[in-house]
Write a protein that binds this DNA or RNA. Structure first.
Length: 358
DNA sequence: GACCCGTGGGA
DNA sequence: TTCCCAAGGGT
């Protein structure tokens, strides 16, 4: 590409960014963490929302964002909270490492950065829970840095715009480079949000609404008529099914719960005691679950079964119930009032199992 | 690069 | 029902 063509190309892309920003101004959605037009966004709000929005829909995040902001109005307040309280408020949102890192990040911002977030992509990415996407998003939206913001929506939009035939996730580097080419130095934060809005509402995975697209004139896939081919993705693995038996032990209106280890699945969260979650064709027989029961009381099977799907496996669980003679002390166990079960903040999988109880 | 890590909604 | 996907990050 010679110099003339390159400048022509750049001009074209600048025009594309402008068209997209005009579309954004006309179709802007009002979101709790979004600053009013022309106002600058609060870095704490932007950070909190971006962490919650990782792999999570806007509709789901709204309620959690409001709850967190009410309870912890500043990064200092969040840093000062006990981890248990943060996990309890996060319960149901999933990907609980996000909550642990959120809390850690708040403490680092307060203790290392005097309560102010770093303003560059690199500085932000050094914080716990902030990776390529989130670092670029905060830099662009909160601090006006012309960072290339690439999430799942942008991957789809850009792979169609440039007709990227390489498969994800290998194509991430190429897509990031293309995104950088079209990211304007003016209003980079609005541009990033416009790209994501476009991806979620117009440039959808199936039957994209190209007639409503403000930049279809620049889209190579639209020109070729094979939009749905992009983004190209590597094939996925099938999910195995794991089976287990959980234990509902009650005494005097209290149920025995377990505080799970910090690392791994549902780390740091409360749950029911159970046999190990293993891939197997049938549920553990009595000889087997006997060795995992939390007490030697009389265990009786409960009607029904709970099903839940995690990122990489399906889980089927049956429930056994027993009455305890006393609130015995058990390693990593604690007793919680049954009437107040909601307040403990159980992950969804355990809520499903708990509703089976007698 | 491959794997681990939740949940809810829509097609 | 089943599959896909959603403003990904850590190891």
């Amino acid at each position: 590409m010679n110099q003339d063509n390159k400048s022509e190309f750049t001009k074209c892309m600048t025009k594309t960014a402008k068209q997209l920003l005009d579309w954004y101004d006309r179709n802007r959605r009002d979101l709790p963490w979004r600053a009013a037009h022309g106002e600058s966004a609060d870095p704490y709000h932007v950070w909190l929302s971006e962490i919650m929005l990782q792999q999570t829909t806007v509709a789901t995040v709204k309620g959690y964002f409001e709850k967190f902001l009410t309870r912890w109005p500043s990064v200092d307040a969040l840093a000062a909270a006990p981890q248990e309280d943060v996990l309890q408020e996060w319960a149901g949102l999933g990907y609980y490492a996000r909550a642990r890192n959120l809390h850690k990040c708040a403490q680092v911002v307060v203790e290392v950065h005097q309560g102010s977030f770093p303003q560059t992509e690199e500085g932000l990415k050094a914080l716990p829970g902030i990776g390529d996407y989130t670092g670029a998003a905060i830099a662009a939206i909160a601090f006006g840095e012309p960072a290339a913001v690439v999430d799942g929506n942008v991957e789809r939009v850009v792979s169609r715009l440039f007709r990227v035939t390489d498969a994800l996730p290998g194509a991430k580097k190429v897509i990031k480079a293309h995104t950088a080419e079209i990211t304007p130095t003016k209003r980079p934060g609005d541009f990033a949000q416009a790209m994501m809005d476009l991806g979620s509402g117009v440039c959808t995975p199936k039957t994209p609404k190209c007639l409503l697209c403000p930049i279809r004139g620049a889209c190579a896939a639209h020109e070729a008529g094979d939009m749905e081919r992009f983004p190209v993705k590597a094939p996925k693995k099938a999910k195995p099914t794991r089976r287990a038996i959980s234990f509902w032990l009650e005494h005097d209106g209290h149920v025995l719960l377990e505080r799970r280890p910090q690392k791994g699945l549902l780390g740091g969260m409360p749950g029911l005691f159970s046999t190990p979650w293993e891939e197997r064709p049938a549920f553990p027989a009595k000889e087997e679950w006997l060795t995992h029961r939390p007490s030697e009381d009389y265990w009786k099977p409960v009607e029904g079964m709970a099903k839940h799907t995690f990122t990489h496996f399906h889980l089927e669980t049956k429930l056994l119930a027993a009455k305890a003679d006393s609130k015995l002390n058990i390693e990593n166990g604690f007793w919680h009032p049954v009437a107040d079960l909601d307040a403990v903040g159980l992950p969804t999988v355990f809520k499903k199992i708990a509703v089976l109880r007698p």
